[in-house]
Design a protein around this nucleic acid. Structure first.
Lengths: 209, 209, 209, 209
DNA sequence: CATGAATGAGGCTTCATTCAT
DNA sequence: AATGAATGAAGCCTCATTCAT
């Protein structure tokens, strides 16, 4: 059954894996055709032969990572029936993505896309499905509720993505993960209370002394 | 008193300005001693003479930017007496920092610090005062209130910084700023309602059908 | 009769055409197995399979072009009965060869042959028939006349070839062809007067003041 | 008096000399920053540091060669008082330029300029002074004479340049220079008779049988 | 304090060429 | 006959860095 896949596929595979690893550990500035190829154990010209350049290869690595995670996360998220549960699942996802370095792929490419219009365009394209995914999930969980009027799923999706990107950078400043965990814990405490936000606001006292 | 500053100060100045500009527009990967020096209109050897290397110069640029903003923001924030006002001021700050590219200095360096322990250490050191600043401000505004028990100022500071970093990357994915503005608007709607989070939570129905 | 030609013939054809085109538009330095194959729409390994290398393929392209033109020019030239008419036909030929890029094939290969003895040898071999052709034509037109004593057909053939090669390079310096046309016009005015060269030269005055 | 010239000047010198030599012996296709630098015995990065690229260096080499020759030829040509003497001087010049490889610099660059608009522009610019030079010389020697009406100096200048370019390529096809010498000899025989071309042409018989 | 020269390494990319299929 | 994969060399160019002036 397994058999031999078409030739070159393994090389492409190794390059994609090596690209992801290099981007994760060396950052965009430290990621070159040579460093990737060395990690993959292949000739660096193959980066151009198979992918046309370093950036396309990095995008391919991002794509592979995204596909795998999207599949897994769709499943994981399907079990969450309310915002509290969703926050828990999301926290697990964040943690896994940080640990696995998946977010780094994304943030490094976003950071690099400043000066590369081509790259930027591709990154933007690849961010869309994630925004959709988060929005749809939120819509399923809180759609129609009073909370959704205050916190529209689409806007919340923006917030989740923003936070997702930010938390990855934040972990770089947080060697022992203590602070990141504090963040997650905070979110876990707030989520079950979110619906309180929809209550009527008591009249506001003018400029409290 | 002022008189002529010490010799070389103007060159240092120009290099620092050029470094900030280059980092903002070209990203870390596109920032070299040469590109900075070209922008500054000076010889690239001066990057090493005055700063000892590219990274130290970039840190100097970050420092200058940080000092200026810290001063300005301390003042701006002092006027905010409650969370709602603070959210407004913060939104203005975020907007200004995005527009002025100040955050980009930070996020690019954080992104680059992955593979550079020396750089990372310096960045971590420079993030501390900002966390302190945000925490103290929050403590002044909500300290002692019930809200502060649910949302401790230090944790909220982490969240603010995380969001601060994330929103910059997010703007790269948001060419027309529509989504970023939606985010800010969401924050503006939620902030005045934050205290509702402290109310007693109605008993939760078991597994909603 | 016609039927299917031997297999691979079409590929060879396309490669030869593509080689000619590439050499014409990109010059020798810009002509590689890859660029040719891309133009031909075939795999670049076929350059080696069918021709053994780039240079042999280029020679094949030169050969095809030469054959076609030699045939056409033999016919065209047959109609010229005197030097004047021959000059006219030759002008048409030069013009056509410049326009069609045929000369460029030749000059680029001659220029490249400096450093490639193998190529040079082949080019020299391929120049011979043209020199013969020009010489024979001139011999037919002016052979036996007094003019042929002053201007031996073989020497004139050298001059024609020299001019032929030079005019192609000259057109590169002459974007609007104005100067090239001036050259042709000059030739047209001189040719009918060539026989005057055979008249007795009046005694020369010593060192004109 | 001689003293030390400014630093770097010697390196530039060596690079220019090496570029000329490499272009002469290896042709444009075989001329790279590396091959030039190796010949010069310097680091190949200096090609870019000093000249910005290979083509600019080659143009610098052409410029140096042109200057030297222009100076020498102005002097040599000044002694020629009539067309016959001029033809002799020109022949010497052609011979010297072929021997010294000076023309090759030019023809190789012209040949390469097909696919390089920037290079082409520069080459065209550098051809102008030579055309001017030849035209002025011819104007001095035959200007005002009847011959100049038939053979305008400017058109003759075009012809001379064309021939100049062509004869260089022709020598590549003429290993032992026999043919090239035959060409020069032909020119030497015709030049003194050129004025005969201005005589009245005997009436032409209609279609000679 | 500032410059320009210099180097060797390494960036991306294309090259000719071979080989298995 | 034709393809795609693969390699190592070499192409151009920029890098950080040092040094003499």
């Amino acid at each position: 059954m397994a058999g031999k896949q078409q030739p070159g596929a393994e090389t492409r595979d190794r390059l994609i894996d090596a690209a992801a690893e290099t981007l994760r550990t060396e950052g965009y500035a430290g990621t070159s055709a040579r460093t990737i190829a060395k990690t993959a154990g292949v000739n660096s010209a193959l980066v151009f032969y198979h992918f046309g350049g370093v950036d396309p290869l990095l995008l391919a690595a991002l794509d592979r990572s995204s596909e795998q995670r999207m599949t897994a996360y769709r499943e994981a998220v399907a079990k969450a029936g309310n915002l509290e549960e969703l926050a828990e699942v999301a926290t697990d996802i964040y943690r896994a993505d940080i640990e696995g370095g998946h977010i780094t792929l994304f943030t490094e490419l976003v950071g690099a896309s400043i000066a590369r219009p081509d790259l930027r365009e591709e990154i933007v394209k690849r961010a869309e499905p994630w925004i959709e995914f988060v929005e749809q999930t939120l819509d399923r969980v809180i759609g129609g509720s009073p909370l959704a009027k205050l916190l529209p799923p689409r806007d919340l999706a923006y917030a989740a993505i923003t936070f997702y990107l930010g938390v990855n950078l934040f972990t770089h400043l947080d060697a022992d993960r203590t602070r990141t965990e504090a963040l997650f814990s905070l979110a876990g405490r707030v989520a079950p209370r979110a619906k309180l936000l929809t209550l009527r606001l008591p009249r506001r006292r003018e400029t409290p002394s």
